[in-house]
Design a protein around this nucleic acid. Sequence first.
DNA 1: AGACATACGTTACTTGCGGTAACTGGAGTC
DNA 2: GACTCCAGTTACCGCAAGTAACGTATGTCT
Lengths: 215, 215
Amino acid sequence: METTTPQTDQQRSAERRRRELLEAADRVVLRDGPGASMNAIAAEAGITKPILYRHFGDKGGLYAALAKRHTDALLESLRAALDAPAERRERVEQTLDTYLAAIEARPQVYRFLMHPSDGAAPGEQGFDVGLHSAPVLRRMGEELAQVIEERIDLGPGSAQLARVWGHGIVGMMHAAGDWWLGERPCSRAELVSSLADLLWGRLAAAGNRVGGPGF
Amino acid sequence: METTTPQTDQQRSAERRRRELLEAADRVVLRDGPGASMNAIAAEAGITKPILYRHFGDKGGLYAALAKRHTDALLESLRAALDAPAERRERVEQTLDTYLAAIEARPQVYRFLMHPSDGAAPGEQGFDVGLHSAPVLRRMGEELAQVIEERIDLGPGSAQLARVWGHGIVGMMHAAGDWWLGERPCSRAELVSSLADLLWGRLAAAGNRVGGPGF
DNA sequence: AGACATACGTTACTTGCGGTAACTGGAGTC
DNA sequence: GACTCCAGTTACCGCAAGTAACGTATGTCT
């Protein structure tokens, strides 16, 4: 057989191993929260620490690899909702709802991606060592910016405007979702509708309250 | 019992001490970034670790106290801009600009408040141990929600709507500001104007691009 | 005055993490 | 059969959070 395929064989094996390790890490993080230690992950994978370090360099590398998996999956869903052939408002609501459904379905994953250091027990190292603080939001922002610029006519300076809006809208969605996930003050549909209303200028259109405080 | 003024004296002294410690911690964090160690902070304050722990319990407590100081200051400025007697758009722009000016003027403080674990050197503990991940955003969101509900007439369900919008707008401002601070793609005034345009429904009003991709 | 409680401060320690160096055993190669 | 790579191990270092146990000045009670 391919007795003369040492490198390819090794590479395939290494990649499979890497996937296994990532899945083990996933399980641990999902179970123990983001405070999971490298030791615990190694144990779950049935091996010991140095192997993890050989594969991922350091904890930040493991975090990045783990985050990339989930981020890719999330972005995939969002792209689908964003590219759907529907009216703009419909698309916006679908995208918001997709995002919220995702974080609602797997809050542990969400918390890991967005607040990787929370839940670290005393003496434990957080998980976002390095500069990996929520690159998810950045990626989503850039992605949305691109879609906006491709599909909407914004006149001069559209590139800049699209990027500002991309990051702004993503941030709005994120913050509202984070708050909603914590307090559950209303249904998902209501939240989606309220946010879409905001984006549709209802804030600007609303009238002043009568007998307000002071003025 | 309260023999004259021993307790009060002690309390005053303790409070002054606490302020001194917080100021020292501030200096260290501002200088060394959020990876500052308790030892370093204690040294800067001219004392040793256990005193810090007697005053703040644990690192999370120190973080919380530190964050509260800055958060209070920031909220103060924002409230002023938000309560100014001006047209709504003017007020919104002023508030956005105030926030952006603050994070632009003291990015170190900003990064500490928002991304407290970044910059932690290997082996160092991040700074947001505990559940203190960005309560700043929550507080700003609630504050804004209150102002919105007080001053704007939103019809039925206004309380809920105001809260969603409060958190959403704060998240928009935060994410856009974070991105802007990192890349500086445009002037502050442009960013403010773009965000206000977004809130004023320009996204909804814009026309579709001709010859878009696919459709 | 002298014994005493109390808060302030210290040194010295434990624990547990991330990360690494140096050793070990088994596959394939000449 | 000697040689070379690997995956994997044990055993360790450095360092940070957090704690226990030990002084020491200050003002109070008898």
